[in-house]
């Protein structure tokens, strides 16, 4: 400490600067608000729940603004969002599947045969239909006798 003895003697080590009143408390509050805002935005970007938190401040996404949807989106945890998307996807798949089954139930073979009783087919048309059915004569006989 000897080499700066002269400076010490003349100027000392006192702090000539000061801060506005309550600065450090306000600083802490403002900073943590910014960080929590940045963390929520980065959460919205993350799609896989198992990944480690990137915690990067996405300045560009601050343009999401303060719309009610954006606020709701930001406040809901990412796990709940993924769960909601999965529930919607499963419901939609079930709906489509059941719709398909329902239309088949409305159109059974016997119904088709009953309707076709009043129609007349040519021999050629009958041959094509029988070939496409992949049934032999015995099976066809069984089918027709059951239908009656």
């Amino acid at each position: 400490m000897k080499q700066e003895g002269e400076i010490l003697k003349r100027c000392g080590k006192g702090n000539p600067f000061r801060t506005p009143e309550g600065y450090f408390d306000r600083f802490h509050e403002d900073l943590m608000k910014k960080i929590s805002g940045a963390a929520d935005v980065s959460d919205a970007l993350r799609l896989s729940p198992g990944s480690s938190a990137p915690r990067r401040a996405e300045a560009g996404l601050s343009c999401l603004g303060k719309t009610s949807f954006a606020v709701l989106f930001r406040n809901v945890s990412v796990y709940w969002r993924i769960a909601a998307v999965l529930v919607v996807a499963v419901s939609l798949s079930c709906f489509i599947y059941l719709q398909g089954e329902g239309s088949k139930a409305q159109d059974p073979v016997s119904y088709r045969v009953a309707v076709s009783d009043d129609e007349e087919y040519t021999d050629e048309e009958i041959n094509v239909i029988i070939e496409e059915s992949c049934l032999d004569d015995y099976d066809l006989y069984q089918l027709v006798s059951d239908a009656k």
Binding site: I7, R10, C11, G12, G14, P16, F17, R18, T19, P20
Partner: peptide, 13 residues
């Protein structure tokens, strides 16, 4: 306005 030092401290800074 946030500097309260004397002349010597100002010189040091």
């Amino acid at each position: 306005p946030y500097f309260n030092g004397d002349y010597a401290q100002r010189l040091l800074q």
